[in-house]
Simulated scan of single mutants.
Amino acid sequence: MSGLQGEAPGLVRVRDPEQWAWFADGVAAGRCPWASAGAVLPAHFETVVRVFPPAQDGSTWEQVAAESGRVAHPLMQWTHIEQRCGMASRSGEGPLVFGDRVPEAGNPPADLLEAVLEHCPAEGAVFHGVWVGYNQWDDPSNEALLVIPGREYRIFKGPKAAFRDWPDWQADRRGRSANLVWPADHSWVVAAEIDWPYLLVAGPAELTDSIHANPGLEAHRVPMNTPLDWSSDTINPPFWQYP
């Protein structure tokens, strides 16, 4: 089953640590650098792709880079391809460091997540992880969490769908996608790290190749253990260094 879901039908909170122990153990065993794919998802997967959401104005990252005279490549960073980055902070008029059309970090559009999940096979229900730090829960108890370095997640089980609402979610705070999704057989993971404006998908080459080949998705293969923070873009200099 798959589809866009504005509310949370069929989702239940998972409190058994055995259901996510493989994930935490996989991250720990990978010993990958901070800010790499292997720091936010288990490192044993064969391949990883970055999937780039469109900008707020609908532009692809490749188009944004071209407009700025920059090069689109697998390790590109928004701060290095968007010429509007840092303009407000340099002028002293405000904190608009990332420009006005940056995709929202950690919250991919539901239609993008749905398009990615169409490539991810699953028998029955899947697991959804939501970062606890949003502090938008009616039930503030943070017991039984998936914990990896620097991140804690509530885990839910339900249909394979792009949910935007969660059990115990405050009614006036709806509209956030899952930060993690994986199937019962642990054959793939979709991750939306809260500080990154793109998705990571890890799994077998056949799965990630199909995402990479989808003309409706902007995706690039990346190594599991290569940092994906601003320092990873060694081709394009960051715009905030410019006067």
Rank of each mutant, 00 (worst) to 15 (best):
G99A: 00
G99P: 00
G99S: 03
D100V: 04
D100I: 02
D100Y: 13
D100C: 02
D100K: 08
D100A: 08
R101A: 04
V102P: 01
V102D: 07
P103H: 06
E104L: 13
E104S: 11
E104A: 05
E104K: 12
A105C: 08
A105L: 01
A105S: 10
A105Y: 09
G106S: 09
N107I: 00
N107V: 06
N107D: 02
N107T: 04
P109A: 00
A110W: 12
D111Q: 14
L112K: 04
L112N: 05
L112H: 03
L112D: 06
L113H: 08
E114D: 15
E114P: 04
E114R: 09
A115L: 08
A115Q: 11
A115W: 00
V116W: 04
V116H: 03
L117K: 05
L117C: 14
E118G: 14
E118N: 10
E118W: 14
H119L: 10
C120A: 13
C120R: 10
C120K: 08
P121S: 01
P121K: 03
P121Q: 01
A122N: 02
E123H: 05
G124Q: 03
A125E: 14
A125T: 06
A125G: 01
A125C: 01
V126R: 03
V126P: 04
H128T: 04
H128A: 01
H128L: 13
H128E: 08
G129R: 03
G129E: 04
W131C: 05
W131A: 08
W131V: 02
V132S: 00
G133R: 08
Y134D: 07
Y134P: 00
Y134I: 01
Y134M: 09
Y134W: 14
Y134K: 11
N135S: 14
N135R: 15
N135D: 15
Q136L: 13
Q136T: 09
Q136R: 15
Q136N: 15
W137A: 07
W137D: 10
D138M: 11
D138W: 06
D139S: 11
D139L: 07
D139T: 09
P140S: 00
P140V: 10
P140G: 08
P140C: 02
P140Q: 04
S141L: 14
S141M: 13
S141D: 15
S141K: 15
N142D: 12
E143C: 07
E143R: 14
E143S: 14
E143N: 11
E143Y: 12
A144M: 11
A144W: 14
A144D: 15
L145P: 10
L145Q: 12
L146T: 04
L146Q: 06
L146W: 13
V147L: 05
V147D: 08
I148V: 15
I148Y: 10
P149L: 02
P149Y: 08
P149F: 09
P149K: 07
P149D: 02
P149H: 07
P149G: 11
P149S: 12
G150T: 09
G150P: 09
G150K: 05
G150C: 06
R151H: 14
R151Q: 13
E152D: 07
Y153D: 02
Y153H: 11
Y153N: 03
Y153L: 09
R154W: 09
R154V: 04
R154P: 03
R154M: 03
I155C: 00
I155Q: 00
F156Y: 15
K157N: 13
K157S: 15
G158S: 11
G158Q: 06
P159H: 10
K160G: 07
K160I: 06
K160D: 06
A161S: 12
